[in-house]
Structures are given as C-alpha cells and as structure tokens.
Design a protein around this nucleic acid. Structure first.
Lengths: 158, 158
DNA sequence: TGAAAAAATGCAACTCGGTTGCAAAAATGC
DNA sequence: GCATTTTTGCAACCGAGTTGCATTTTTTCA
C-alpha cells in the first residue's frame, strides 16, 4: 500500500462507479481503489487501517455503508471466513468462482479459472441456487515462510 | 421438543462420550442429546433456547466451552453461515460432506452422499488441504411454505 | 476413605464485528 | 437560490464469542 495509489486506479474506480450510474463519492472511489490494489480480499478492519495509513481514515459506519452499497451494486462481493469476519473483493468477471482461505494467515483469495461443477444430490424438496466452494490450505506466502522460516514474521493481520 | 428426550438418545450420547474416553458430564450429554435430536445444525442460541425450554438452561459460557470441547474431540463440527453465526452438528461418518444453507430460513443442513470432488486449479505455491462446499438455496420446508403459503408462519428462528 | 489435584461450571466483564438513530454536510433537482 | 435527496459522521447500541476468576464437581492416589 503506497502513500498515493496510482492515478490509473483512481480513474478505474471512478469509471466503475460511473458505469453503474450512481453518485461518485470520494469514499466509494477510495474503497474501490484499495480493493483494486489488493491481492486478497480485504476485511473492514484492513480497509480502515489502509485508509488510515494513507492519511485519510474512514469513518467506521461510512465504510460499512459503502461496502454494503458496493455489494448491492454488484461491484464487490463479500465472503465470511472461518473467523466470522467478512472480507470484500472486487466482483470478478468469472461469474461463479471459488475461494481460497489460508489456514495460517487467514487471508482469503478469489480463485479464477475452471470451477468444478459440483453435482450434489439434494434431499427431496431442496432447491439449489448457488454453490460456494472454499478451498482451505496454505497460501503461497505462508508456504514460502514455512520452508524458509528466516523470512517469516510478517503477519498480514488481515 | 419433548419435556424429556427419549432415553435412547441419552444412552447414545453417553456412549459417544465414553467412546472418546473423557468425563461424561451432564452438560455434554445434554448438548449431544439436543444435537442428536436436531434435523439441522444448531446455533449456540438455538441450543440455549432448547435447553431453557426443557427447564434446564445452560450457562452461556459453559455451552460455548462444551461445544468447543466436542468439536475438539471430533464428535461435532461447526460451520459458519452467511450470518456469521456458527452452527453445530454431529460429525457424521461421511468424512467430507457438503452443506446446504437455506437462504430463506437460514437453517443449515449437512448433505450426505456423493460429494463432488472439486478439481480446482490453484495458483502456484498454494496447497490445498480441504474443500468446503456449501449449497445455497431453499430448503424443503421453505419451498413447501412458499407453494402453500397458508401453512406458513413457522420461523425456526435458528 | 479422605485430602490434593484436575477438570468442569457459573458469573461478570469484556472484545469485536456490525447495526441503528440522528444530526450535519454535500450533492441533486427545480 | 432553495427544497429535497443522498451521503457522511458520531454516539450509542446489539449480539456472538472470549477471558478471568471463583466455586463446584470429578478424578487421583496415598
């Protein structure tokens, strides 16, 4: 997280907002910028910290509301991890995609690419609507940290 | 829920506890009984209500601790729903099984039977450990209630 | 059996993610 | 410009889950 995100990201965020025909507010742009720059899904807390680190802290409630709004607009989607914390990431074009939750650092990634179509048999009367697939395991960062413990020590704190 | 659960369930619960060689305490037995009788995963809250309804309320913390202990023993497993509430159910013999979360009433069921093996491609460095599959949709009860709205009105309040 | 150690329970206070109510500020419509 | 709507900010609140500690129960073992 740089002190000043690249102008391209600001434009990108603004464009995304214009595309869904709603007011472009600084808070929305800034949240989108942060999400555009993120390599993993971000929690409310990590977004707040990132904003605070860049000198413009979010109000807690405003951030929740912006995230709700973005989710409602379909620009962003949220996933709750095993720690019961919601994490947000840009809605990517892969309509149905799986997630990866690292059991070491807790970070959550969106997996792109071939999603296994899970053919499950449901009990009678049950109607399937959407299937969520979450892979649990160790992310690249934590695998590297485990094999080379010297380079460890950076807990993303997401 | 009956005032006194069937003795078979009490025995069943006691046997399960003996099998893992730990102290059989009334709290543990009662929690297991409730879970044995449940048709869907139960939240901490619904367990507390069920216990209170039968005249022997649980202490909040004791219940959490019993649930943690049961989970640690592998007798029970917990799943967090989209509402960030953990729900507990007996560990069933199907080692890997999928879940069904009803988007109307919020209840969570364990699906038994053929689990589609999700063949996902992970980014380099990522190691898969376990795959969680949750189907979202409408459960049998809510489907029935929707087609025959007259018979509605029972919100399980889970 | 009976005392000491360990495990389980109960209560109060607390943390933390998230929400609600309401007033101030900014944007929009005319 | 002025009225209406939307967004923002603050404070108080809610509910799931945890922690600390004292009390009770169970287990151990001399």
């Amino acid at each position: 997280m740089q002190a000043a995100p690249a102008p391209t990201r600001h434009d990108q965020a603004t464009r995304l907002l214009h595309q869904c025909g709603a007011t472009v507010t600084p808070a929305r742009v800034r949240v989108l910028q942060l999400l555009l720059a993120a390599d993993a899904a971000m929690s409310h807390q990590s977004l707040q910290q990132a904003a605070a680190a860049s000198g413009h802290p979010f109000d807690k409630v405003t951030l929740y509301r912006v995230l709700d709004w973005l989710t409602g607009q379909g620009l962003v989607h949220s996933v709750a991890g095993h720690d019961r914390v919601r994490r947000f990431s840009l809605m990517n074009p892969h309509h149905a995609h799986a997630h990866f939750e690292c059991s070491v650092c807790g970070r959550l990634f969106c997996l792109r690419g071939s999603l296994a179509s899970a053919a499950l048999e449901l009990p009678p009367g049950f109607a399937s609507d959407r299937v969520d697939i979450t892979v649990h395991g160790r992310c690249a960062g934590c695998t590297a940290a485990a094999t080379a413990p010297r380079s460890r020590g950076k807990d993303p704190g997401v």
